[in-house]
Design a protein around this nucleic acid. Structure first.
Lengths: 227, 227
DNA sequence: GTACAATTGTGAAATAAATCACAAATTACG
DNA sequence: CGTAATTTGTGATTTATTTCACAATTGTAC
């Protein structure tokens, strides 16, 4: 259980991480649906679309919304605003990619990340050779320039796509340089002992293994994110 | 809670999904450590390495192991075998990648996936043009050949890297064609209503948003997988 | 060999999350 | 306007997972 400080709201609320995840998903969905011209949607429909029972949706939304129209559906614009102000999706944050291997290069050019509130403003790699061969619009720098560029470009978040053996050390460095959030794609699990630094581990190979384990166990599961 | 049928064991055990995840991680760790020549390891050390308290590690292992040496550490080889036989990591499964866009291409050549028990034996895309331009050692086919190739190559698992708008339909098709597990990289959440088909959702953009939400909430979290 | 330190295994307790169930509110419609 | 059909919001309940606590076991030092 975590504490979420709703901006524009004196109250301190606790929102379970699974609910935060679902709310993020709901936000994306609303974004999509808004384009079709709809102005209202029910918890049932949201649930159907993201594959979750409607009562979960209502519970999730109840964590951040007070009052409103029981009986009617949710006003899409209004609900988006609620999530927005709770999670700060309206603030654009600068991010960098550390480790310009295959995965790093893909993410550099992965359009979906650039939408919303992430802006990738730099890429880093220790191999000068690689910096020269990778083709991208985003400026690339050698690793030793990390402290300087992070400061200059006001980078808050880092995507870590270095090999496992360098992940731990690099994460420590990044934190020292002032990075406040890390998305770790290396197979090493990074635990965040440092206060105010947020780390999510995104282990692709591990996820495949998990699928295989569940598969072997002949059992159905819901979702990766337990969403 | 799920049912896991331990092979070579008459008993039916229930292992919570979070424990399955951690056990997968533990397995990878043991694999690494084994190379260094160590033959034994403690729950404390495992916990330190994957960022989880030692009592969780012991609990997880207790789900699949019976008897053994209290007081001593875990024998690495033995523990690996236990996990192995519980989750079937010794069986190699054929997989394919559906949707050869940027992400799909990266995964095609992502070495880490090829280790362990996954073997990517085919790639599919609806654009003939793309099939011709992508450079890879793995054979590529047009989408309409999916049913045939799945049967011929005995493909059990699919990695879905198509755009969101085609994800749902493609997933349904794959299931019809006999695919038993799907790793979904599209932003659409796929829920698995079909028995015996396992789906994990791997939403990169969503994960970034989640990080941002946690970041905005000024709260520290542990791990993406809730591992 | 004996005391001491370290370690596992596991019921029991505590915490977290999902699900339920239903009152209260709204809309639809003749 | 009145009745039926939807729909939300949320305490209460159930289920799931983590954490605790400690007996039992093994290794270690002298």
């Amino acid at each position: 259980m975590m504490k979420i400080h709703l901006s524009g709201n004196k109250k301190l609320k606790k929102i379970p991480p699974p609910s935060v995840r679902r709310l993020c998903k709901i936000y994306s969905l609303l974004d999509e649906i808004e384009k079709t011209g709809d102005i209202s949607i029910s918890s049932k429909e949201i649930g159907r679309r993201i594959g979750v029972p409607s009562h979960s949706i209502r519970k999730d939304i109840s964590y951040l919304k007070k009052g409103g129209g029981i009986g009617a559906g949710y006003d899409i614009k209004e609900l988006k605003n609620h999530i927005n102000s709770a999670f700060g999706f309206d603030v654009v944050r600068n991010a960098c990619i550390v480790g310009i291997g295959k995965l790093g290069t893909t993410l550099l050019n992965y359009k979906d990340l650039l939408t919303q509130n992430f802006k990738i403003v730099a890429g880093f790699d220790s191999s000068i050779n690689r910096l020269e061969t990778v083709k991208t619009d985003i400026p690339l720098y050698p690793t030793y320039e990390l402290p300087e560029i992070i400061k200059r470009e006001k980078i808050e978040l880092a995507v870590l796509t270095v090999p496992g053996r360098s992940a731990k050390k690099m994460a420590d460095n990044l934190i020292n340089y002032g990075i406040k959030g890390i998305v770790n794609f290396s197979p090493i699990v990074l635990s965040n002992r440092v206060k105010d630094v947020f780390i999510t581990n995104f282990d692709i190979a591990g996820e495949f293994r998990f699928l295989s384990a569940m598969f072997a166990a002949n059992t159905s599961i819901k979702n990766h994110n337990d969403l």
